[in-house]
Simulated assay, not measured.
Amino acid sequence: MNKPLIRTIGRHKESYLLMTPFMIFFLLFTILPVALSIVLGFTYYNMIEPPRFIGWYNYIRLFLDDDIFIIALKNTMFFAFVTGPVSYLLSFLVAWMINDLSRTLRSIATTVFYIPTIIGVSVFPMWRLIFSPDAYGYLNGMLMGLGIISDPVAWLIDKEYILLILIVVQLWMSLGISFLAFVAGLQTVDRSLYEAGVMDGIKNRFQELWYITLPSMIPQLIFGAVMQIVISFSVADVSIQLAGFPSTEYAGETMVTHIMDYGSIRYEMGYASAMAVVLFFMMVFTNRLVTKILQKVGI
């Protein structure tokens, strides 16, 4: 450890002491699991025998010998590139629209929009009832009543509809941490900037948004992007609860459900770790790409 770093720690020892509990938990439950996954990805490990080094075999098997993984990869990418940007924009637009409400109304609106994220798991039975495959399902009943369809549709069983329905439900649950960050960020924007903007020629709310609000919310925008990337790449509960585990012809399979299959059911921990490493680097790459795009457009 070099002397400048030691002196810095000495000058700010109280701050480092307060950070210590977080850093311990971060190292134990974030850094260590990622490092172990990378190591185990090069082994055959079934939790009974000691890990056995097998080199790149797990990764070769992933892309050349596992058709279900390719389906899960495609579904995950589709989820990420649809729900991620849509959820991100929706979270910001809703936060922006309720920002000028009074404090009480804004608190109520924030609670109302955030509730689906909190109760998402508990209302899956309601979604199953809506998309029930018989004539008593709400959606089937409504469409049959309107004469749009003549026979009930097995929405959560037919592979043509599964992924679309999962995306709809995921979007319903999407106003989460990013939404709260945007609500908080909008409240920190200096109001005097808007007055100065009017004097400088800003004529409407959209110019105000582009030239003042967004540049003033850089930390919250980047944080929201990171959180949306993580959420959109780690979809699992929605698929398991609505489409089943596994879903029809793996139409709702995602990388996380595939990892759960091999990790918690088949106990092929080395192979599951290899998939987790691939997913981790996909998230890191996407995060870097989105951050660069936001910085390039001046946000």
Results as ranks from 00 to 15, higher is better:
M275I: 13
V235I: 14
W210S: 15
P152N: 11
M126K: 03
R103Y: 10
K159H: 04
T291S: 10
L289M: 12
F233H: 08
I115A: 10
S102F: 05
M97A: 15
T104P: 03
F281I: 05
Y271F: 12
T248H: 11
T8G: 10
S102N: 15
R7T: 09
M77P: 05
L175H: 00
V290F: 07
F53A: 03
P219E: 08
G141F: 03
L93Y: 09
M19F: 03
M144V: 02
Y88P: 01
E249A: 13
L101P: 01
N58A: 02
E160P: 01
N140I: 03
I202V: 14
P21V: 10
L143Y: 07
R106W: 04
G10F: 06
G244Q: 02
V39Q: 06
T43V: 04
A251G: 09
W172L: 06
F63C: 12
L73K: 02
Y44E: 13
M77E: 05
W56G: 11
N204V: 09
I6T: 08
L214A: 05
Q241Y: 12
L294I: 08
L90N: 01
V230N: 13
N2M: 11
I9V: 13
L90D: 05
T8D: 15
Y59H: 07
K74C: 07
L221Y: 00
L175K: 00
A274F: 01
D200P: 02
F179Y: 12
L166Q: 07
E208S: 15
G298V: 06
F206I: 15
L5W: 12
L209S: 03
L105G: 07
V256K: 00
F223H: 09
S239M: 04
F69G: 00
I118Q: 02
G197S: 08
R191D: 13
A154P: 01
L143F: 13
V256A: 07
V121A: 11
I299G: 06
A196I: 04
I108P: 01
S232L: 03
N287R: 06
H258M: 13
T286F: 07
T83S: 10
F25V: 15
I212S: 07
D200A: 10
Y161Q: 06
S239G: 04
E268N: 12
S174A: 11
S247A: 09
D261Q: 15
L289Q: 06
I48P: 01
S37M: 10
G197C: 07
G270W: 00
T213I: 08
S234A: 11
R11F: 08
I202P: 00
V238R: 04
F280C: 08
S232C: 04
Y194V: 06
I229Y: 00
T43S: 10
N2R: 13
N75G: 05
A181K: 02
F92G: 08
T20L: 15
M1W: 11
T104K: 10
Q220K: 06
L143V: 07
M144H: 02
D100R: 14
H258S: 09
R11N: 12
I222D: 03
E49Q: 11
I6N: 12
Y16C: 02
I54R: 02
A95K: 00
Q295N: 14
R52D: 04
I71S: 13
Q228W: 08
L62S: 00
I177S: 14
W127V: 03
V277S: 02
P50A: 15
F53G: 04
L18T: 09
L27R: 05
E160K: 15
D151Y: 11
K13Q: 08
R61D: 05
D200Y: 05
S132E: 12
I24H: 07
